[in-house]
Write a protein that binds this DNA or RNA. Structure first.
Lengths: 218, 218
DNA sequence: GTCAACCTTCTTGTATACAGAAAATGCAAG
DNA sequence: CTTGCATTTTCTGTATACAAGAAGGTTGAC
């Protein structure tokens, strides 16, 4: 499948916004970026509109587009929704998950355990992502899977922060075990609770997140 | 706030797709539509891309954009997610809802009751929408409110079908009462269950929905 | 008569040109 | 020195022009 330049540009810009190359509030100049990418304004505008619809930039009529990083409040809100959506995935998956998928979860968890032992935060992060995506898929609801994965992706740059907490890796690991146990027992409510607690930002995590946001905002 | 033509066109096209003016699979011709709206292809293309991102049309590179109504399977999936998201709104609202909002819900329900007595399906539909949006808002999570409202909006054309079921209005009414009672009692799980059941497509509703979709697909 | 290759034509994707609005700058007046 | 208004400039939004790819028809060969 041949992709349009606008899509490629949108992806690159998304990357730059997420990794902080373009900080919050910066105006994205159409002509400057068009020159940089070696294209005309037309595909670049299309890319910017795509970003605007996904919420990464704000498009103010006759003024331009501005990078719009979510503020502390919105981030907390997004993490809360993320936790609830994962809980829903877990609740549905508890009734629908296949034995093969349970084995996949075990395998992903084994690799997670290795990463914890190393300890290799990056490897853990990768396997953690696999683990969660399996659960999205096993919800048996393709639409839910897509929506949850989309939000997961959007929170990606902020998710890494959580893993920086001292002792977070072993704790996260234990939560993974509990999640798989609940799914294997086909206990919907237990799986939902475990996933909600696993993803939610609360207590120590909350304070850490707020501190990071405060330092980033300066 | 001055709106761009592309946004106005996107709204109009969305309306036409939802009300069936453009049935599933139809190709949306850029030049023809541009002439019809009296604009050039540029803003029209922007509108089409907006629709593509919201999932109403499929954009196939070098081939054009085609109306993409959700199939039966995807519709069932979307309704399931809708039910779960409303349940989440209810769960959070149970702990956060204000007395003023409870009064609002009572007021909306009173108007619903009048509509049932009439019976006036259109009036009921309108007040029902108000009722649900209050709950979204009282979840206390602006992001969740937005996302839930967006899905609600996307399912709007299919939601009306449910009300056509014989005896659905009084039943829906009773469910509204139960929802408010659960919220007033601050019983999170009860509110979640009530809302999930209220929105979910199941049993009689499911068969009816499938029949409608089968006749629409012919 | 049928199949295949080529050509025509139509449509999308991209570039450029133009118009109007907002912001910035400079000048003048208090 | 500050403030307000006008002018200029820059940038967005829209229109048009151009290029490349895909579909369909026609013609020629087997």
């Amino acid at each position: 499948m041949e992709r349009r330049r606008a899509d490629i540009i949108a992806e690159e810009l998304e990357e730059r916004i997420c990794d902080g190359t373009y900080p919050d509030g910066v105006r994205l100049d159409e002509v400057r970026l068009a020159e940089e990418f070696g294209v005309s304004r037309t595909p670049l505008r299309e890319a910017l509109q795509k970003l605007a619809l996904s919420g990464l930039v704000a498009q103010i009529p006759r003024r331009g587009v501005f990078v719009r990083q979510p503020g502390p409040v919105q981030l907390i809100e997004m993490f809360e929704v993320m936790a609830e959506m994962e809980a829903v995935c877990g609740r549905l998956a508890a009734a629908r998950i296949s034995d093969a998928a349970l084995a996949e979860l075990d395998a992903a968890n084994a690799l997670c355990r290795e990463a914890v032992a190393a300890p290799d935060a990056d490897a853990y992060y990768l396997e953690n992502e696999r683990f969660h995506h399996i659960i999205y898929r096993e919800s048996g609801n393709g639409f839910l899977e897509q929506e949850t994965a989309a939000l997961h992706r959007r929170l990606k740059p902020f998710r890494r922060m959580q893993l920086r907490l001292r002792g977070r890796l072993p704790q996260s690991m234990a939560e993974h075990e509990e999640i798989v146990a609940a799914l294997r027992a086909a206990d919907a409510e237990r799986a939902a609770r475990a996933l909600r607690g696993h993803v939610a930002v609360q207590g120590e995590k909350f304070r850490f997140l707020m501190a990071r946001l405060a330092s980033a905002a300066e």
